[in-house]
Design a protein around this nucleic acid. Sequence first.
DNA 1: CCGTACCTCTATAACGTTATACGGGTGGTG
DNA 2: CACCACCCGTATAACGTTATAGAGGTACGG
Lengths: 338, 338
Amino acid sequence: MGVSLKDIAERAGVSLATVSNVVNGYRPVGERTRQRVQQAIDELGYTPNLGARHLRRGRTGLIALAIPELNNPYFAELAEIAIREAAGLGYTLVMENTAADREAELLLLDGSHRHTIDGLIFSPVRIGRDEVLARSADTPLVLIGEGVYDVPHDHIAIDNVAASHAAIQHLVAIGRRRIAFIGAAPGADRQSAHLRMRGYREALAAAGLPFRPQLVARTDEFGRLDGRRAMRDLLALGEPPDAVFGYNDLIGIGALRALAEAGCRVPEDVAVIGIDDIEEGRFSTPTLTTIAPDKEEIGRLAVRRLVARIEGAEVAAPLTVQTPFRLVRRESTGTPGA
Amino acid sequence: MGVSLKDIAERAGVSLATVSNVVNGYRPVGERTRQRVQQAIDELGYTPNLGARHLRRGRTGLIALAIPELNNPYFAELAEIAIREAAGLGYTLVMENTAADREAELLLLDGSHRHTIDGLIFSPVRIGRDEVLARSADTPLVLIGEGVYDVPHDHIAIDNVAASHAAIQHLVAIGRRRIAFIGAAPGADRQSAHLRMRGYREALAAAGLPFRPQLVARTDEFGRLDGRRAMRDLLALGEPPDAVFGYNDLIGIGALRALAEAGCRVPEDVAVIGIDDIEEGRFSTPTLTTIAPDKEEIGRLAVRRLVARIEGAEVAAPLTVQTPFRLVRRESTGTPGA
DNA sequence: CCGTACCTCTATAACGTTATACGGGTGGTG
DNA sequence: CACCACCCGTATAACGTTATAGAGGTACGG
């Protein structure tokens, strides 16, 4: 079917090895033969069989991006960036959806894909440090997000405590006093939820505001539906909050919806802020104030570090990178002009 | 590094071929040896090297899903379904983002990935029938969406004319007379935009309403931003529309935003309807009425048909499937109760 | 008791690459 | 002129699988 090295070797009257060297320059080739080979390649339209190449090289050319929710626009945007970056480096990126399922995450860690992928970019949410330390697979692993800390792998994330701190600080700055948090996690799950919670508490303390447990709403998942449900509960309180900090933008969107249904004005009655800066928040009514991580940076960095590991930078110590974030003010906390 | 067939062949004291037969049952193996081999497999933790297998079999086990916008939640939702279905059938799905770029689409068609993927699920928007007919690659191709018709490939899509018809009919039924369409495509691009436009015109005619060219807004892209921009233009007309039909939900969301910014009430002043039924539309304010295609059916069917072709059902004639859709009434056209 | 038909297993040649080891020219140097 | 060094190229052995051809052994019918 396909045109192989052999075909063009015959055509150009040279050996297989020479053609291979022309194609990927492992050894120098004389100018005359190089041209003859190149011509044959062009005429027959040769493209290397990547499967065979990777078999020989011991690699597959595939890297995986494992995320808890493909439906979350944050991850969709991140995936798009990562796919582009990987393609540029000669790798194909495949997406693995763990659906925030513990079993799925463990399976991924222990490399049921051992032979299939060269490396893994992983955003874990249901497993912890111990599970990562105990993993048996030996392919490079880059962690993103805030699930796990202090493990011997590259790790890229924003500073969650600081990000939450900034969010609360903003709400305080616009005069809010009863600030709720939606998206606390039950048990040991979702480390990032704990971190954001910690930033919430620290910022409250720093502002001299009391921590009120009834203003903390836990959710099972972290989607729009969960945000709406939690917001409804908060509104049912004797003294409802005057501001809400959502674990992510989807929670924030859900909260906005619940507020609209309850006839509350945003931001006059309740201000809302999220994290992620998904495009949806720029078009919601009202638009959603958010903490914007540098997705471009996270996606590109993760892929580049992983590929560097795959291609042999074994010696360098694992790097933990904290990518920058910034506050984006929008209508849900009152526009600067208003 | 990895455990190979050879390792477990030695361990079990049998030949390579026998182990291979135990693993994938090409030839029967005696019960006693089968058990011995199976035990060795379990003890050493063998997993087949898929690269080598696929090299030998002439397949890679990869299928691609090529879509114009990964950021569009409609495609993200579709991708999630397709990934799941593919995994269930033993294939890995990789996403290709054409970014609605003509060159990218042509490249994909002519199989620069010839050796890399076994088949392609493709949602073309910038190329037409001729380009598909002229393609040189010989891997199976399943088309989704409405870009191209009458080509010798499996094709899965909703009936766009009928879907648009249904949308307009609904707007007419709630008493609207000046119905605009956002998302007409310039030139020959976006066949689906033409089809939806046709449904729009037909339904207007069927309702005895005049076709007013000034109520048709073309857009370059099909995102929220384009919807907002177009809606602004429509509002600037001497006689603005009393209803808007968006090419898709993102356009609809953008239109909602423009209406909110202009202080228009929805649906009282202007009703809005889209196509796709993305989750975002269930949480926007107001919620967005839409034509809901059966994404589950489209995604699963596309993968299943592709895999069937790959695995040799060459003879069966290409199938064109029109998947069902339904109208989902939400606030943007007035709730049934109101 | 031989021939034949199984049934189970083995040996081996691919699949398309890349890396290693080697060979045959050419030019420069002592 | 003999020697070494080099440059350019070839031959070939892997990588881990699967499919084909065939080799033993046992059972069975004639």
